[in-house]
Structure formats: C-alpha cells, structure tokens
Design a protein around this nucleic acid. Structure first.
Lengths: 113, 113
DNA sequence: CAGTATCCAAAAGGATACTG
DNA sequence: CAGTATCCTTTTGGATACTG
C-alpha cells in the first residue's frame, strides 16, 4: 500500500485513523444513547427530550443533537409557528444505530448492580 | 429531605439518580467498548491491549482498566514472575456486556460513512 | 513488563440567565 | 418554545519520562 498505517481500507474501530472510530466515540458518549433511544418511537421536540433525559442541561442537549445531526443520525425540522416548534427525528441510519444501542441500554438496566 | 424522585426502584437509564446511569456512562466511554472487545477471546496482557487499541496512552489505558475492574467487568491478575506478567480477563458480567458492545462495534464498522 | 508521575491541552459537562 | 451566551468545574485525553 501507499501509506503506512494511517489508511483505512476496511472499517476497523481498533484502527486509530479509521473514521469509524469517530462514529463509535459519538455513539459511545454520555447522552447519545439516551437521545437516540428517546427518538425510537417517533419525532420529539426539544422540550420533550429535555424532560426525558433527566439532568441534561439545554446547552449539552443542544450540542448532542447537533453532533448527531452532523453525522446524519437525526434530522431537525423547525416549523414556523408561534410558539416555535422544532422536531427531531431519527434518520434511517439513526434507526439502525438505535438497535444495538437499545440492546446496550437493556443490558445495563438488567445488570446494573 | 425524604427524597422525591431521586430514589431508583427500578433500573432506568433515563433517571438521573439511577446507578445504572453510571454503568451506561462507563460502557459508553471512549475506550471501554474497545477494551472489552479486545478481551472477548480470552485474557490479555497490558502490552497486548496497548498495541491492539491503537493510539491509547498507557495512562489512559490504565485508568480505563481500573474503572472496568472497579465495576467488576474485568479482573486483573498479576503473576510474580520476572519479567512481570499481568493479565486482564472478562468476568461473567463483563462477558455479558461484551455482547451488546460487539453489536455496536459491528454496526459502526458496517455503517460508518 | 507494567505500569505511575508529571504536566498540560482540549473537550465535555453543568448552572443560570437571557434572546429570537 | 427552543435554544444561546457566559462562566466555570470536571473529566478525559495525551506525550514523555521514570520506577518496582
């Protein structure tokens, strides 16, 4: 190959330079698994998510949503109403990620000491 | 106070005070999913893990291993040999956690853009 | 070999007040 | 309502050198 080890022919989360490492870091971050889970049953509004994710601050929730949106795991739709309404929804990709994340949450709830 | 909502009768990762939230935070941290995956096929030594987890520094790896050990997801066994040999191994609990984490890693490797 | 010690940078998290 | 702005603390990450 042309480069040394910093190419990434196949996706390998163990490879430092593999872009999929970023995706793992995102999914494996404090709030992502909870946000994605909260969207499993359909679109939700910012305020709804905020209530559901006990303890999350608006800033952190906003950041998390943006990162997920950047990675195309969720979409953000703003409706020009008064009062303002914004809905977040899983993309197809996000719905796919939701599956293993649900298994993880379920395992945790069943096995936390 | 007598507490209002900060008790945790049933495990709910969405509840701020639920101890299982801590477990989720641990599993959903940068290196945990990789460490646990690296131990799926049997015990591994510190140096082996360090090579496998490209880019991890000894300090961070050490911290990660300690947190996993504290939560009883892995065990640490030191053999009084020269040179020193230390092995890390999944506990039964850790092996259980390894299942959903593997699904997550697999999904990531299959779906990272 | 398997870490720890040190020092440091960056990111994440968080409380609160304020705005379009 | 849905965020931003601000300020601050904590956590995490990281390079490197050193030790039992």
């Amino acid at each position: 190959m042309a480069t040394t080890t910093d190419s990434c022919d196949r996706n390998d989360v163990y490879a430092a330079m593999c872009p999929c490492r970023d995706m793992l870091d995102l999914l494996a971050s404090k709030w992502s698994a909870l946000v994605i889970g909260a969207l499993e049953d359909g679109p939700r509004r910012f305020g709804q998510l905020r209530l559901r994710l006990e303890g999350v601050s608006p800033k952190v929730l906003s950041q998390t949503l943006k990162r997920l949106e950047d990675r195309e795991l969720i979409t953000r739709t703003a409706y020009a109403e008064v009062p303002l309404r914004v809905e977040y929804e899983l993309t197809e990709l996000g719905a796919g990620a939701a599956v293993p994340l649900k298994h993880l949450r379920d395992w945790v709830e069943s096995n936390a000491a």
